[in-house]
Design a protein around this nucleic acid. Sequence first.
RNA 1: GUGAGUAUAGCUCAACUGGUCAGAGCGCCAGGUUGUGGCCCUGGAGGUUGCGGGUUCGAGCCCCGCUACUCACCCCA
Length: 430
Amino acid sequence: MGEKKALKNVRGTKDILPEDSFKWQHIETKVREIFDLYNYKEIRTPIFEETELFARGIGELTDIVSKEMYTFEDKGGTKLTLKPEMTASVMRAYIQYEINKKVPLFKVYYISPMFRQERPQAGRLRQFHQIGAEAIGSVNPEVDAEIISLTLHIIDSFGVKNFLLKINSVGCQKCRPKYKVVLRDYLKNFYDSLSEESKRRFEYNPLRILDSKDESDRKIVQNAPKILDYLCNECDAHFKELLTYLDVLGISYEVDAHLVRGLDYYTKTAFEVLSKELGSQDAIAGGGRYDMLSSLIGGPDIPGVGFALGVERLLIILEKNNYSFGQDKKPFIFIASVGSKAKLHSLNIAQKLRKRYIPCEVDLLNRSLKSQMKEANRQGSRYVVIIGESEMEKDVCLVRDMNSGEQIEVSLGKIVEYIVDKYAEEITKN
RNA sequence: GUGAGUAUAGCUCAACUGGUCAGAGCGCCAGGUUGUGGCCCUGGAGGUUGCGGGUUCGAGCCCCGCUACUCACCCCA
């Protein structure tokens, strides 16, 4: 029984190894620049919250809450949940710190892992990452327009081309209930032909039937009454104004009356950005307005609108299009040494170079010089500093230019300054 | 949660109807260069063919179970 079970990452999670982490860093820095352009500040909330926040905010009956959350009790018996989405957390913080009393419009962004216990597949993980933003405090459609424009700006900045913006309005507490009645009336006639899932939804959330992928459902829904025809004056005006803004901004979209959201808190604007390059999970980003959320979780009446983008899904598209993530960082210098006395010098020089902020790698494995050279080459070092027995006698070291293969002697006392100059040269060249 | 497909060295994959079929390329290590990388040549390490049963003279190849992965449903980013 000496064999221990091989440990591995849990289902639906992914390790981001060094060969990929620089891609994530690339995406993150790029996206932060764009958020700066729109004056959104970063917010970081805890990875878990009290379960009640999501249960009340997202809705007890939604799929996310009813079957996809990672919920557990801590040792004090408090029910906690790994966040399945970010908006509820941001709103919780907004209410908690009474931000409505401090700023008129709270504009924040986040880059964070989320957790949902679904069956993993292409573009769907149990721990996945979202880049998103929320603008809380205004009912104006200008804000919806800014969020949408921001979403597309990010997608566009990575050169993603084949995407489609779908947009709809899902109404509000006033008009949606009325539409639900009309929709149920219509669907009632086809009830027996509905899919099992849709039958279940008939009572508590008939809107979800509209975006069913089931063939028979789709046919039925095709001629269903459209929510856009049943919006109250306020929602209708909001939607029309938003479309006007999008037109002015040169943003093309497709109004899709069947687009709905799986979270209860959405009101008015709902949108999704779809990509054909994604396969089954084709939404790269989604979002909308959530004027009911604050009151659902016990706060004052506070409107908001936001979006979230799936980082893994963005990566799938970028990899497919051979997107250039740029070069990973390389050490400028590799210090090779032969012998224990030379090793002391090499460690010392490495430390001095690093204190001067010059990326530097030094042999730690006492391998043959050949191996060290190979390693330096593999890592893409610009120069290799070589310290061996014969150099030690003359109090010098060799500096090898890895591009030209040229090699010169530099005295040990001057090597640090020599490299500092070379580095400065290299920096100004680029 | 439901369905289908896949499961061979670190990676990508071979192995005709079950009979030297356990291999290649890449990567790694070493040698060719008694202290010097990238190219080339040579050699080496590394797999009880996911796990457990069964059929058979004989199974990586057929059957059953389990597990994992993948894709789709579902859900959504």
